[in-house]
């Protein structure tokens, strides 16, 4: 029960119910990527507006479970206005928080609410999906991201 509460933190539920930057298309979007998890059907598109090395605007669309939606929503909030290097460091930190791999390259702040996911190995992919799509958009990989 307690780990359920830790997974479904109030912040997570709030971001699931009212995702930030959802169905928002940045005026000057110049990077985008699409990703999905074929095992569960979650899919997101992330659009970025990057100017002079800074993510000045971000939006996302798609469908997913509460963890996937909230994590992606939190991601958009966290990266908006940040230089690309910082965004990449944040990606590393979240990856570390969720999977235990790598290291915390930047302070997580509010993103710490995602820590509860670590106790639910089957759900880690849900939380990482939006982040991977964002990273692919940043790197202009062009191809579809697939987490499974």
């Amino acid at each position: 029960m307690n780990d359920l509460r830790a997974l479904y933190e109030d912040v997570i539920l709030d971001h699931n119910r009212e995702p930030r930057n959802f169905q928002h298309r940045p005026e000057g979007a110049n990077h985008e990527a699409y990703g999905f998890n074929p095992l569960c059907g979650d899919e997101f598109k992330v659009l970025l507006q990057v100017e002079d090395g800074v993510v000045t605007d971000v939006g996302f669309e798609g469908v997913g479970c509460a963890i996937a939606v909230a994590s992606t929503s939190l991601m958009t909030e966290a990266i908006k206005g940040k230089p690309v290097e910082e965004v990449e460091a944040l990606f590393q930190s979240v990856h570390h928080l969720l999977t235990g791999e790598g290291e915390e390259a930047a302070p997580l702040g509010k993103l710490q609410v995602l820590a509860g996911v670590h106790e639910f190995p089957m759900r880690i992919k849900c939380a990482t999906l939006g982040w991977h799509v964002m990273k692919a958009a940043l790197e202009d990989e062009g191809e579809t991201v697939c987490t499974e």
């Binding site: 029960m1 979650d42 479970c65 509460a66 939606v69």
Partner: peptide, 14 residues
């Protein structure tokens, strides 16, 4: 309503 099947499955599993 307002519950994705994954979230349902996780809570049921617990």
């Amino acid at each position: 309503d307002n519950a994705h099947p994954h979230d349902i499955a996780t809570i049921l599993d617990r």
